[in-house]
Design a protein around this nucleic acid. Sequence first.
DNA 1: TCTACTGGCACATTTGAACCGT
DNA 2: AACGGTTCAAATGTGCCAGTAG
Length: 807
Amino acid sequence: MLSVEMYPSLALGHQRVGDCYYRDREPPAHMPLYPSSYDMAAGAMTSHPLAPPPAPSEPTCKGQQDSVKMELENGSLWKHFCSVGTEMIITKKGRRMFPQLRVKLSGLNPALRYILLLDMVAMDTSRYRFQGDTWQVVGGAEARLPDRVFIHPDSPATGAHWQSRSISFHRAKLTNNTLDTQGYIILHSLHRYQPRVHVIEARDVLRWGGGQHSFIFPETQFLTVTAYQNNKITELKIQSNPFAKGFREDGMNSKRYRTHRHTLSCDPCDSTELLSQYSSSSSSSSDLQSLALASLPSLPPLPESVCGYGSNETPFQESPLPEQQQALDLVVIGTTPLVSCYVSVTFTAGVNNEICILFLPCRSVTMSLSTYNGTYPATPLGSSSFDPAPHPQSSSSYRSDPSISQPSPTSTFNYPSMATTDYPSILSSSPTLPSSTTSPSLQQTSFTYPTVPISTSSSPKPLLSSTSCQSILPSIPQQGLLSPHTPTNTSFPSLPPPSCQPIQQNGVTTHSMLTPPNQALQAVPISNQTPPLLVFNPTAYPYPNLPLSNVIQTTPPSFFNLSSPSTSQSHPVPSLPYSLSSHSAPLSYPFPSLPSSLSSSSSVQNWTLPNVSSGSVHSAVSIPIPTQMQAPSVGSSFLPSSFTHPPSSLPNPVYQPSSCSAIPSVSVASFQPSASSHIPPFSLTNHSLPPTTCPQNQTTTPSSYPPIAPTEIGSFSQFNSGAPYLPEMVLHHPSLLPPLDPSLSSCVSSSSTPPALYPPFSSYPLRLCQDPRSSFPIPLRHMYRQHQHGHTHAQGSYLDMSGRAVF
DNA sequence: TCTACTGGCACATTTGAACCGT
DNA sequence: AACGGTTCAAATGTGCCAGTAG
């Protein structure tokens, strides 16, 4: 299955934004771009600012670690929108994004499989309002919502597949329905978000956790709205989106036409005739409409395009790859095409001491990394988990370009005009977890949330001064030279430096996403250059047979492969019975990590859905975690009530999944791919990580880790037999990973272990949803539709990660 | 009263089944 | 019977707008 555990880093959710860097930048480049709202909130709550992480060191294998690059194909369109202020409609039923996120990948290993994910990162903790033609901060952000991730329907697919076509996330939908059951990405209205794309190496259908590359495109950030606020955006959308052709000036549903529709003096039949004259021609409807409208003397000439690109661009092109050809042999594991499923996985290591897997019905291809904690909002901050005060610095990321926007006394919010040069898209080109304490990806741990003055003022504050880049940094050493470790000051200078690329938000050193490439965060054109990799430390560990570019492996391959003597005994893991054909659509994949009774496809298909009302999840699969890693009190089963959400006092709960406590549980022991051509039962041998492998102490190189006896992976040609995966490679940056409670793990008991700033992390369930329409050998759209129209949830209710019934 | 949100509407596009001819 | 092309209807996507709720 999409073992979530296979993708622990994702479980981090928004907080991962901090690990996103412009890899082509030098040291300052790895400063976190944006802390998620969650991060911000967490930071605001904590009274124990994290110590700055060690100064990043130059990766020894820089350049080798990763050459994965991602380009935003429709970047020009995005930039147009960004220059105006991109708004995305969100509805209860879900709304697609436009412009759609269409990217091009390169640098992947053609033989390896990758999973592409899309998620949204809250850019700040503010709520906005469109006033006076500008966006202004009007208060604090809403409570954190369930983190959901959209899995590209092609996932998993080989690198060759991804690189051979443009990758479109046009099927991703945004919703403001917090109770959404379709798996759409849930967002708050009037909030700012930044789309983020993850490329995760999927070693096989059941295991994720290879190198992870996260990308963001600054120009793709947007504000969510339920109705367009800025007319310019509306015009842009109408001009650019084929679905909105009817609203174009030459369309039959245009304002102009509507206005005149009932007042037209001309005989409607005339227009009809005009249209009929061309009805048989190849003229587009727009052309016909134009002709029809042309007959209306009261209408002025119709502009071709508001921005000049609307007519030339084909913004709504589908991915070259027909959906039916797309492969999706990932999400369906354990079910038939007729039975799409939700997979909810919970990381409970350290607390519940087990990993629970929920198989739940679903109809979309999204994965929810439910780190949402319904109780989380209740924080020491008061009524809001977020700092209600508008953070000038938070908006600084939207630093307006003086050359583009006129200074406004009201400090209007202006999106920056995008530079002609593409921004580096890579935020985080690195393994999910840094293997070294110097890993840039851990920069987020440098978030030293200053005690931001909580303003209760209801007066709207300017989102951003159009004349200056606001930063909370008292002083920025130098443009582009601000170290991510620069001590932060809790004070917020009213007058930020004239220009500041590095922006610190709530103490989080970051860069303006809108920073022109030629500045501190100067980006290298994506298309032509391979930005230097700032990401990782040589301590990254290569997967077997992975090219050096992909060697960084800091993420446990899979939580599902938790090795534990007890686990192996109680839940024999069947060997993978299938080969990973590129686009095979597994109709019934036995679930290796499941008890034998549940491993069969039939069992999975008939899986009983959790009964929310009863407070128990019947379909949950609990995988005990090694005792030594267990928290003092561990639940024996996955129960809704067992979700131990981080206390509101947690400094930064979002990091918990990465906590040392979680890693040991993942104890990669069973993930030793070998040269052997068959897949043996997952070894459940518990490979306790020696103290030396403790993330906190991790400064050693891969070579320092004795290879673990490789296990046969099977027919995965991509797996190099010669390079066994080293579980110990899963390292954690001390500053990033919340140290385990000393009592929980010996590895954290060392003197070098920083004080435990985080309580044992709670569960971080992952919910996977599949869109049956994608890549199945047989058409599923019809079935999908039937489900949709039924408005019924025959699958039953299921428990969201927050413990509440979703449906 | 204002703001944000919702649902219905009309229009356009997409999708897939049905039909037809080879 | 199989295949390919065309047609058509339904589903879906989109912005607009009136109404509603807070």
